[in-house]
Nucleic acid binder design. Structure first.
Lengths: 117, 117
DNA sequence: CTATGATATTGCGATATTACAATATGATAG
DNA sequence: CTATCATATTGTAATATCGCAATATCATAG
């Protein structure tokens, strides 16, 4: 695949978007801490609806961040490989130094812009 | 800042979102290759409107991925630190192994779902 | 001060994503 | 085969983001 084309950047952006949701990040952190969990266990830990979670899991799987292993009626999810925790670590390190700035970002998570007179 | 709270994950998701846009990725790649560029040079290289680009640059700056240096009327942008190329490298490595799956992801970049009869 | 070039901000229609409920699929026990 | 539990998929209203145009700000030259 050509890494210079506009379409490739659009697809690469979609990959990063897999990391851009609090529920998906909480799934990744839970799997990093606990190794492997099935859908029901993740529903319990995150406290969200099963169908909703399943959509997010499909996203993480399609984007190569997690893999699954079926065991009877249960489907266990775990991090895809060692690069995933590395990615999370580096991202968290940069984020820790800049969370205050992220909160003021007007493009991402556009807050209603403080009204001024 | 408490790294366990839901709000923190929401903010961390906003940080990742800075990477989730083709224009912002192209800016980061341009800066990685060329070191430092001002806004006009980036407008030329990316071929988009100045105001539009400026919004994306503000996003990257707020999220700690780039920093700026004013020189007279020009503002030069460059990558914030060495962790940024590391982040891009690891992300690209995982993406390269899974771009076909990313393209089928229904949560991110929801395609109109192939109609079946 | 005025004009001009460079960059930043704002407003808003078009589009994409999310959250939830309903429903479908798949596996296993009896 | 039927019932049941676990997981996946779909529809859609609410919400957030994008992209562009207009305009504001800021620095410098004259």
């Amino acid at each position: 695949m050509n890494l210079q084309s506009m379409e490739t950047y659009t697809l690469w952006a979609d990959f990063w978007q897999a990391l851009s949701h609090p529920i998906r990040l909480r799934v990744l952190e839970a799997l990093r801490c606990e190794g492997a969990l099935n859908v029901g266990q993740l529903v319990d830990r995150l406290g969200i609806g099963q169908g909703h979670l399943s959509n997010h899991l499909a996203c993480l799987k399609n984007c190569g961040l997690v893999t699954t292993e079926a065991q009877g009626r249960y489907v266990y999810y775990h991090l895809a490989d060692d690069r995933v925790p590395t990615l999370l670590d580096v991202g968290e390190a940069i984020f820790r130094d800049h969370w205050a700035g992220v909160a003021t970002c007007a493009v991402v998570s556009q807050k209603p812009a403080p009204t001024r007179s």
